[in-house]
Every structure is written in structure tokens, then in C-alpha cells.
Design a protein around this nucleic acid. Sequence first.
DNA 1: CATGAATGAGTATTCATTCAT
DNA 2: AATGAATGAATACTCATTCAT
Lengths: 205, 205, 205, 205
Amino acid sequence: MTHPPSKYQPTDDRKRAIAAAARSLIVEKGFEGLRTREIADRVGINIATLHYHIPTKEALIELVAQSMKDDFMAQSMRHPRTGLPPLEQLQIKVDQHRETRRDNPELLLVMEEMGRRARHDESIARYINPMRAFWHQQVADILEAGVADGTFRADLDPWAGAYMVIGVMLASSVFRLDDPEALDRAVSELLRAIVSDRTKEHSNV
Amino acid sequence: MTHPPSKYQPTDDRKRAIAAAARSLIVEKGFEGLRTREIADRVGINIATLHYHIPTKEALIELVAQSMKDDFMAQSMRHPRTGLPPLEQLQIKVDQHRETRRDNPELLLVMEEMGRRARHDESIARYINPMRAFWHQQVADILEAGVADGTFRADLDPWAGAYMVIGVMLASSVFRLDDPEALDRAVSELLRAIVSDRTKEHSNV
Amino acid sequence: MTHPPSKYQPTDDRKRAIAAAARSLIVEKGFEGLRTREIADRVGINIATLHYHIPTKEALIELVAQSMKDDFMAQSMRHPRTGLPPLEQLQIKVDQHRETRRDNPELLLVMEEMGRRARHDESIARYINPMRAFWHQQVADILEAGVADGTFRADLDPWAGAYMVIGVMLASSVFRLDDPEALDRAVSELLRAIVSDRTKEHSNV
Amino acid sequence: MTHPPSKYQPTDDRKRAIAAAARSLIVEKGFEGLRTREIADRVGINIATLHYHIPTKEALIELVAQSMKDDFMAQSMRHPRTGLPPLEQLQIKVDQHRETRRDNPELLLVMEEMGRRARHDESIARYINPMRAFWHQQVADILEAGVADGTFRADLDPWAGAYMVIGVMLASSVFRLDDPEALDRAVSELLRAIVSDRTKEHSNV
DNA sequence: CATGAATGAGTATTCATTCAT
DNA sequence: AATGAATGAATACTCATTCAT
């Protein structure tokens, strides 16, 4: 890695601005429409200056990947998992996703673009795959806890169930369920599908 | 030179070959790596010849979209839906997806690429969106029939459940669950999540 | 020359049609916009067929040049010069030009295009230059006869005066004096400039 | 390579050099033979550099049109019109044209090419038409003054006469009267055609 | 005679990257 | 740090011409 563990260098407001411009450009036109010159324009600098900060386009894309990872991890960590009951934890995860879709949809779009690009670009895969694994693990952990305490079905396979949970989120992205009610309807069904009968009696899922 | 097949082919054959070459190239390098010259090389023709058959790159991409739609529809229609019990119908759908992933994975990869590109390219969206809607509808119909005859949970929402089913397929693509056992495990959980208790008693889900 | 003295070959309705299509295309888009394919389209034949009749584009342009020359000579010869008084002969020349501008303006446009092209293309110059020389000679002859019989100024230099006459026609093309009255006004001035005082007294120039 | 002058020139200098190269190329090969790559070669720069300074070929042609207009206006304004007698003013105009033909013939050739192109290209017409109108107006003004002060024929129509004057210049271009004596002969006739008898007595026209 | 298919050599334009200042 | 100018290597597309049938 060319970057120190967590954040960009202090002086690098520039790098942050570049990453932000790149991300918004990826949202608008996809990776195939990403042009260094346009990024420089949006940041308000010369291309030569852009290349002074980031030597190559590959490095630029890695910068974006890094910035995505930073944001993703920050969001994942925001809410404490300890102590809360599993159903609530899952609810938080789902709500977070919904909020991101509403308030910061470009995060998901860029993630999707990068995920696809990771297939042909190992340097991106290095960032994306751990994020996905981490995501799956978090959900699987919640499900496992929920099975243990009887919140979720006893026959629920946490590893597999996590893909189901994640799948609904993916589907809502791919099928553009931007309408909150539509998303709610899908999430409600997801919960009915995994909670135990006991939980169903006591909640309104 | 790569011209073993033959010179002077009718346009329709050439178009088929061009679409095939384009698809495999999209699989390998993504849309952003699609070059007309490389397609021509793979087909074994001159670029000018390529342009003789397909005037512009946009037309080429539409050709690919059309070919995808043709394949998708052909596959969707292959198995009869009438008469079979819902669980079996769903099983067939899932198996089909699994088989496609195994025998013809490029179909799914190209579909994913096109789906993403559809976001910025209306001419692609015109092909992709109907396919997705059709896919969702087919699954929802099966679920609805299964709820009606008691195969699936009485409280299953077919519309939402369809996204759950599709979501698992999407997740298996995105997370690359290429191992058949892993896929089985995910599918088994999916079925447990939607079948009724009565069905659970009588089958081995 | 590849062509027999005067006309195209008998069977060559095709050649005539090709020349006509080429000429109208030159009018619309200039030489730089002349495309063999488009000519073929207008004639209603395949490009390969076009090339069967006319081997190269250069030959095509020569064909056009030849057809121009044929038309030009035919028009120049249409009216008898013998016997008529010089003023009337000049009037006829001018009227002919006016009629051509009105009824067949493309003839003049193509001529202008070819004249320009002749500068860089010797094979065209071979056709164009004789036509121009002939044109000038015809006018100079008329003027000379008019000076001899007192119709035109005694100090009129027929050779130079011919350029003046021709110049007005050129200017009316270049400045697009398409309005008949405007053209009349220019021609009237031209006549006043060359006729003798005696003629002025007896006519209404 | 043809790079003797120097690398890294300011845009304005480059643009001037590009316009000059384009003009000489138009003279040699006509508009249809104008190739961006060849212009770049003559200027001694890379094609990409050419496009850095002038984005498109269309813009290049407009640049040429602009440079033509600049030169034309500069020349038209060089000699003062105020105070001089009309005959002398006209003489200056004609001499200027003769000089241009001798010292800078490419100016006239490019002008002719542009005039022709203006027929199919509105963006050129915007430059050419005003220049022509200005030219005609200047000559007409001189003639009008000459009629008023008795230098020219009392029955001379300045508007029409201007086309006659211009026509002789056009004819000398089209018929390539490059020989100074030939041009003189034509101009002398032109003057005889428009000056009054009184003027004829006092001058040697 | 006619044509569908094929092609070599261009043709303007683009883009990431580099250089001189 | 920053920038105006420069460039090599593409990139989609064009066009006159040829070939096989």
C-alpha cells in the first residue's frame, strides 16, 4: 500500500477533493466515463497538477477504493453491536442501508461499480473483497446471535441467511426500489422469513 | 491471422459471430475494455468489415443487448410452468440459474455489466429493464401459486419474496459462490425461509 | 481520351445517369462531399456496379467533366451567330446565361466547382480550360464585330472587353444576383459601358 | 522532422502558425485536400498538439476564415480614401488587387475556396458574405463619388458598375491573367468603360 | 451485368501522461 | 506546488476499391 493505514496525509485536502470528484464522476458516468481531465476540472486544478498529486490513473482508482473502504468501515462501526438484541441489530443494519440509499446513494453506486471492476482489476479486488467479507460476517454474526437467543428460526443457517439479507439489499439496488414503502415491504418479508414463530407473536413483523 | 473459418459469410452469421465475440470480450474486460478492433480480430475480419455489418459501436452494444434478451427469453421459456407444483417450479428456476452459472457463466456476467451500463445508457435500459421485470414477475407468480396451495408460508408476500429469491441469486453472483455446495447451502436456507411448516414436514428442506 | 469524340456509348444510359447523379451531388455538397457510394445510391445501383462502369473516382470526375463540356458546347451552339447584329448576339449570350441561372443553375455551380478543382487537377483542367477559352473567344468575336460596325465604342478592346462581359456574369454568380431585376440592372450597366454613343441614341440601353 | 523553430510556443503564436499552414495547404490542394495531420506536420507539432490549440477541424476552418477576414480588412483599410479624387481611389483599389495577385496570390486563392465552401457551410458564409458586401460597397462608393464630380460617366449606375469592376478582378483570377500586361489591358478597358468623355480627354485611359 | 461482402489506408479526435518553466 | 504546452498510442469510423459468386 502507498497509503498509511487509515487516513490521507494531513496536507491532502487535495487528495480528498480528488477522490470526491472522482466518485461523483463515477456515479454520473460509470468507470468507463471517468476522465482524469474532468476530475481536475471539478477540483479546479490543472491536469498536470492532478498528476503531481496522483501519478497515474491506476493510483487514482486505488485512492477512490481506499476512500470507499474508509467510509464503509466508518459506517459499519458507527453503531455499537454489543448489548443490543439481535433483532434490533439487524434492524439497524437494514436501516443504515436504507439511509445510505436515501442520503448518500452514490456510495452504493460507486461500490457497485468498483465491485464489477474488481473482476478485471486485482488492485481493486484487494479493497473490495475484504469489505464484502466483512459485511457478510457482520450480518452472519447477528443472525447467529439471534438463533442462539431464539429471536430467529432455530433452523436458520446464519452463513446462508446472511446472503439472503444481503441479497435483499442488492436486489433493492439493482431493481431500484427507491420508494421507501417498496423497500419496507421487502424488508418486512425478509424479517418474516427469518424470525422465529415466538418472535412473530411478540412483534409486528 | 485468425481466419480459419471462411471468408464471405452472410450478414446474419457474421452478426452472430460479432455478438458472441463482443460478449466474451465484455466478460474478460468489462464494457470499458470493449474495443471494436479486438472484436473484429476475434471474428477474423477487418474493422471495416465489422462496420459494414454493424455501423456504430452503439449499434454493436444494442446487438449484444438484443442477443442477451434472446438468450434470456429462450431460457426462461424452456421449461413449462403449467401443471407443475410451485415448489418444483421454483426449484427449476433456481436450478436453471445454477446451471447457467456453471455452464454459461458469461451470460450472467454480461447481464451484470449491461445492467450497470443501463444506468447511464437509455438504449441499453430499454432491453434490460423488461428482462428484469419479467424475471421478477415469473418468480412472484410461482410464489403466489405456492401461497395459494399451501406450499409456501401463508404470510409470504409474493412480490417481496420474489426479491428475496432473486437477491440470493444476485448475492451468489456478486459474492462468487461458485462452489456448488455453497450455492446449495444458500438455496436450502432460502427454501426454509419461504415454505410453510406443513411443507417442511413433508420434504427435506 | 477514353471516350469517343462526342457522346457516351449507346448502352450507357447508366453512364449518363451516373454523371447526372454526380453533378447534382456536387451541387449539393461540393467536390469535397462527393461520395461514390452516394452516387450509386441515387442511380439505384450497387457500388460494385458503379465501379464496373467507371473504374475509378478519377474516371468518374472526368466523366462529369466530359458531360459538362458536352452540355456547354451544345448550349453555345444552339443559337446561330451568323447574320445577327452584334448587339443582338451579345444580348443572346447574356440572356442565355440568365436562363441557365434560372432554369439550370446547377450547370453553373458545377462549372465553378470544376474550375476550382482544375487548379489542382490537371485531368480536369484539360476539359475546363478549352471551355473557358472558347467562351472568351465567342464574346470577343461579338465585340469585335460590334466595334467594326459601330455598335460598340470605337476604343473598345474586344479582348479586354470580353473579360468585362464575362466578369459581370461571374460576379452575378459569386454575389448571387438571383433576383432578375438585379441582374438586369447589372447587364444594363454593362451595355452602357460598351455601346457607342450612336447606339445609345438609338436604343434604350 | 521539421521542428527547427522552437518547442513550447504560446497559443496565439501557434494559432497564427496553424492558420498560415492551413492557408498554404488550401492553396495547394484545395479544401478537399486539407488534412489536420499535414497542417500539424508543417507547423512542426504533433496532431494532438494541434487539437490542443484548435479543438476541431470546423474550428480550424473558422480560424482560417477569421484570419482571412483580418487580412482583408487590414488591406482594405491600409489606404486612406478621404481626400483623394475618385479615379485615383479606384486606381488604388485596382492596384492593390494587382499587388495582392503578385505578392500574395494565396490570399485570393484561399478567398475563392472559402467563397465556394460558403455555399455549403453556413459557418464560413458568416465570414465571407460580409467581406464581399464590404468590398462591393467600397467600390460603389468610389464610383458614386466619381459620378458626382464628373470623373465617371453621368449615366453610370454605381451599384451595377461596382459589379463590373469586381467582375474584371474575378475574371482575372478565374482566367489566370497573371501576366501584368494582360491585366493592365483589362483594367484599361474597364476604365475606358466608366470614365466620362471629359476625363478621357484629360487622362491617358 | 450485378451484388453482398471484404479490406487497406486513411481521418479526425481522445486521453493519460510528460516536460519546461 | 502549479501550469500551459506537448505528445504517443489509441479509437471509432470512412471511403474507394476489390473479390467471389
